[in-house]
Simulated scan of single mutants.
Amino acid sequence: MSIVLVGGHDRMHSEYTEICSKRGHRVKVYTQMPTRFEKVIGKPDGIVLFTSTVSHQMIHTAVKEAKRKKIPVFRCHTSSGASLEGLLRELEAKTS
């Protein structure tokens, strides 16, 4: 399953990647807004938003693309590894 993770802390990038890899998911992590963000999102199976550590513009762009491409969005206020694991379980249950 492919996932786009939006937000979080720069220092946690490798931990987010490791958590997703252990559960068998491919992940793209965006802690900062890249140029043409709407184009780099692609067509993942789900988008995870860490709302406390991301700009409103990034959230707006990600949600807009998710609606347009019918991608499920999972939001969490905290950006910890445990939060990510919980969201991944929720995503797996919803897509199975």
Rank of each mutant, 00 (worst) to 15 (best):
R68L: 14
K67F: 13
G24K: 06
K64S: 14
M12R: 09
G42Q: 07
V27A: 07
S96I: 13
E92Q: 14
K39Q: 13
M58W: 04
G46Y: 08
T35P: 08
K22S: 14
T53Q: 14
F37Q: 07
V63M: 09
K39S: 13
M58V: 04
Q32Y: 13
C20R: 09
P34Q: 08
A93N: 14
L84V: 11
Y16M: 04
R23Q: 14
R23I: 01
V4D: 09
H77P: 02
G86I: 00
H13A: 14
C76G: 06
E92I: 05
S21F: 00
R36Q: 09
C20E: 12
I59C: 04
K94D: 15
I47S: 08
G24Y: 07
P34H: 11
E92G: 01
V29I: 12
E90Q: 13
V48L: 05
R89L: 02
P44W: 11
E65N: 11
T95K: 12
I47G: 06
I19R: 05
F50C: 02
M58Y: 01
G86V: 00
A62I: 04
H56W: 11
S83W: 03
E65Y: 05
H77D: 10
T53S: 14
K70C: 05
R68H: 11
V29P: 01
V29K: 01
G46A: 15
T95F: 07
G7I: 03
S2N: 13
V29L: 03
V40K: 00
E65R: 14
S80F: 06
